[in-house]
Amino acid sequence: MDDLVNIVSTVGDRFANNVKGSIVNMSYEKWIRLVIVAGAYMLLRPYIIKLGGRVQMSAHEREAAESEEAYQKAQISPNQLRGQVDIAEDSDDEDDVPTISASGADWGKKARRRQRTVIKKLLDAEEKRLQETLEEEEDKDIEEFLTG
């Protein structure tokens, strides 16, 4: 343990002495050189970042173009399958046709009908919940008056 503390203190002392010696022993020429290097870095940094952004953007566009070419080369696209797939009809729908093809207009009507029924169920459930909370509050008010 003492060796570890000795090593850490030696490293700290040497670091402090070297930094202090470097700053104290710097000539005007070295200070000017340091200021020039730091200033050049501050001036050129935004341009270097913009250049990196352009390179990254061109690489991204190149990858997107390659993936688009690969997609175009696909044998069957999802749009070609539209209207060819048979979907079984739900038993609670109004129509009595056992299967229909998934065309845009028929599917839209059914989806809107299902969506309306789901929304009605949600609204009914919310109204029921609100009614129950209202009844509970009224019961609490009546109970207050009876006990008070």
Rank of each mutant, 00 (worst) to 15 (best):
M1D: 14
M1W: 07
D2I: 07
L4D: 07
V8W: 13
T10N: 14
T10V: 12
T10I: 08
T10C: 07
V11F: 11
D13H: 13
D13R: 13
R14S: 10
F15V: 15
F15L: 11
F15T: 12
N17H: 05
N17W: 04
N17G: 02
V19H: 08
S22W: 07
I23F: 05
V24H: 03
N25F: 02
N25P: 00
S27K: 00
S27R: 05
Y28R: 12
Y28L: 11
E29L: 02
K30N: 06
K30G: 00
I32S: 06
I32N: 11
R33S: 15
R33Y: 11
L34E: 12
V35Y: 03
V35F: 10
G39H: 07
A40N: 15
Y41W: 15
M42L: 12
L43K: 12
L43S: 15
L44W: 09
R45L: 14
R45G: 03
P46Q: 09
G52N: 13
G52E: 14
R54Y: 15
R54Q: 13
M57N: 11
S58H: 15
A59I: 03
R62H: 08
R62Y: 10
E63V: 04
E63Q: 06
E63F: 07
A64K: 08
E66F: 03
E66N: 10
E68H: 08
E69C: 04
A70N: 13
Y71W: 13
Q72C: 08
K73M: 07
K73P: 00
I76V: 14
S77P: 09
S77V: 10
P78Y: 01
P78S: 06
N79L: 14
N79M: 11
Q80S: 10
L81R: 05
L81C: 06
R82I: 09
R82Q: 12
I87V: 15
E89D: 13
D90S: 06
D90C: 07
S91N: 14
S91P: 00
D92S: 01
D93C: 09
E94I: 02
D95R: 01
V97I: 09
V97G: 04
T99P: 01
S101V: 06
S101P: 03
S101A: 14
A102E: 02
S103I: 14
S103R: 14
G104F: 13
A105D: 04
W107E: 02
W107T: 03
K109Q: 15
K110Q: 06
K110P: 05
K110D: 02
A111F: 08
T117D: 12
T117I: 07
T117L: 12
T117C: 05
V118P: 02
V118L: 14
I119T: 08
I119A: 03
I119F: 02
K120V: 04
K121H: 04
K121F: 02
L123V: 08
D124P: 05
D124Y: 03
D124K: 03
E126H: 10
E126W: 12
E127R: 08
E127S: 09
R129S: 01
R129P: 00
R129F: 02
L130I: 00
L130W: 03
L130E: 10
Q131S: 08
E132D: 04
E132R: 03
E132N: 02
T133W: 01
T133K: 07
E136N: 07
E136R: 04
D139P: 01
K140G: 00
D141I: 07
E143Y: 01
E144P: 06
L146Y: 12
